[in-house]
Nucleic acid binder design. Structure first.
Length: 427
DNA sequence: TCTGGGGTCCTAGGACCC
DNA sequence: TCTGGGGTCCTAGGACCC
């Protein structure tokens, strides 16, 4: 049964371009939080040699030379456009797995194999017309091969015009293609595994596809064995159910500037916990424990380094922001050491389970718990209506000395009434 | 001066139990 | 002198992904 993998090209950059057509044809990049690293590049920026994940301050000279345009990341905008793309794609097949913000799998079984290419071209045109984003489609009989086909579609192999269907290749063509691509391009084969594969004389995808399955399993793991099977057309990875609840929720940020005081760290931890608790309630889950971590700046090698972390168990699983903050701050007080310059902090909610499934214990105060649910629901409702952060707990602070820098933020064209695009405005 | 954030899965090893 | 073994559960760490 064929899978399609639809992936937006240079997603964040394309989102910025969708609202500013003058950016078309120019080198454009989108930066990570604090304008730290390059996380999305237009083809023109790639051609200039800008690398993914490269610190922006190292590229600024090059950027000036070539007139590269940089944006701070605008996740509100990207999230909204992503939802539109996914919603359109869901109408093209009975089953969809949204794999990440910019890509999804579709189950194409039952469709006429001969017309898959033209069908997927129609998907591309619809997304382009309705959302203004370019996408590529890979089609193959396993998810791993569909990812690879998508890669080929992007590169224009076999004259692919944004769509590549491995079902149209015979064995000889596949072998030739696989022999021309290095194993590191495969989904699930990262840097470390590539290195180890090289020492085993496995360089290309074809080398990996024809490698001994048992040897791969013992040298690596069952994950690698599955990958090899998938390369041979044996499907091991099913389409995953949509809306599966997460197993952990992490919220962390680097600070805009260094922080030394416990008070400032506490504010950041309370703020991150608030965000995480909102996500938790959005999933309809409760957490059994919360981990807290604080880091100094690892790039400042001459400065004293300290990484602290701790996991605090809650007395009972909860989704109450106040209880989570209380636990997080008690953990923070234990790991905090004065005299260090902190660069980053974060929290992680663990032991997540559906709120309806928890076992009440003898000591649970059910009245208090239902009150807590009401308070949190009200807070969430107000924040949804009036904008994020309208109602927060005092612990999150108002000074927020640790807040990040985002000097190159584009407008929230689609999600904020005050920032809508005005027809005829000078761009 | 300036170096992201949020996830998943697997494995090894320790704790604990009988 | 000689000090079990197997199962389960949990956690930390490592690998990967976008």
């Amino acid at each position: 049964m064929p899978f399609a993998l639809i992936d937006c090209n240079n997603f964040y950059v394309s989102c910025e371009r969708a609202f500013q057509p003058k950016l078309e044809g120019k080198p454009v990049v989108v930066l990570s939080n604090n304008d730290g690293c390059v996380v999305s590049r237009s083809n023109e920026a790639k051609a200039l040699g800008l690398q993914m994940g490269e610190p922006w301050f190292k590229m600024e000279k090059l950027a000036k030379q070539h007139g590269i345009i940089a944006f701070s990341s605008n996740y509100t905008l990207y999230g909204d456009l992503s939802a539109r793309v996914m919603s359109i794609l869901s109408t093209f097949a009975p089953r969809q797995e949204v794999y990440s913000i910019d890509e999804c799998f579709l189950d194409l079984s039952g469709f006429d194999p001969a017309s898959l290419t033209s069908y997927c071209q129609k998907m591309r045109q619809t997304i382009q017309r309705n959302v203004g984003l370019p996408v590529c489609v890979g089609i193959a009989e396993t998810k791993t091969l569909a990812k690879l086909a998508n890669h080929c579609a992007k590169k224009g192999f076999f004259g692919a015009n944004g769509v590549c269907d491995f079902g149209l290749l015979d064995d000889t063509q596949r072998s030739a293609l696989f022999s021309s691509i290095s194993a590191g391009e495969i989904w699930g084969v990262g840097r470390r595994i590539s290195e180890k594969l090289l020492t085993m004389k496995i360089k290309t995808i074809e080398d990996l596809r024809t490698a001994n399955l048992e040897r791969m399993r013992s040298q690596f793991s069952v994950v690698m064995a599955r990958t090899v099977q998938e390369l041979n057309g044996v499907s091991c990875l099913e389409l995953e159910k949509v809306g599966k609840a997460r197993q952990q929720i992490v919220v962390s940020r680097s600070f805009g500037s260094m922080i030394t005081e416990l008070d400032d760290l506490s504010e950041s931890i309370a703020y991150f916990t608030t965000r995480a608790a909102e996500k938790l309630r959005g999933d309809g889950s409760v957490a059994a424990s919360i981990a807290v971590f604080i880091y100094t700046n690892p790039f400042k090698e001459d400065a004293p380094q300290y990484n602290g972390s701790i996991t605090v168990a809650l007395s009972h699983p909860s989704d109450d922001t106040r209880e989570l903050i209380k636990a997080a701050l008690s953990g923070l007080r234990e790991i905090y050491r004065s005299g260090f310059h902190y660069k980053k902090s974060g929290i992680q909610l663990m032991g997540l389970q559906g709120k309806g499934t928890i076992q009440p214990t003898l000591f649970d105060d059910t009245e208090k718990q239902s009150k807590s649910t009401t308070v949190m629901r009200t807070m969430d409702a107000i924040n949804r209506k009036m904008g994020k952060g309208s109602v927060t707990l005092a612990a999150s602070g108002i000074q927020q000395r640790w807040a990040m820098h985002r000097g190159r933020h584009s407008r929230n064209f689609t999600t904020d009434w005050g920032e809508l695009m005005v027809v005829g405005e000078d761009k």
